[in-house]
Amino acid sequence: MSKLEEIHVRIEPFSPASQVPAILTELQTKLDALCKQGVSDSIDLRSLPMFPGDYEQLKAALGYGEIQVRIDAMGPTEIYETALPGIWWIRHQNSENENIAEFIEITALPAILKTANDDIQQSGQQLQRLIDSHTRDTLNDE
């Protein structure tokens, strides 16, 4: 047995100290702000003092929606839209698959998914180099 996840822990179905109802209420307030004022927001899950089992219960309560994305940048990042559109679950891990940050984002699209302008420009230059190299190869063949 090499990893903590391999030790099976029984999660109590309900704890009198559960923070889940409070988090759901906070999500409702933030979703309302997104809807009416277009303001995106997020909740940093690491900063919340959650009781063992709260995390699993929150995840189960929000469920899974239509979109699931995986980013490979300095380790995996898993993003999915929950069953409640506009509420995204984002988990950043390092290359050893350890969590380094975890958020719930209340937004139309998480910022990390958008391609940055600088990257688009670099992409254009890279494409030009590819075209030049192909043109050279074709000329040489002739």
Binding site: S40, I71, A73, M74, T77, I100, F103, D119
Partner: peptide, 26 residues
């Protein structure tokens, strides 16, 4: 070889570490 998304992810984790709003990552 660390991409911009990788850097943004690192900054999001830094914001979390400094107890700043995750919106400060940018």
């Amino acid at each position: 070889g660390i991409s911009r998304r990788g850097f943004l992810k690192f900054c999001a984790a830094t914001a979390s570490m400094l107890a700043l709003s995750p919106n400060m990552a940018g």
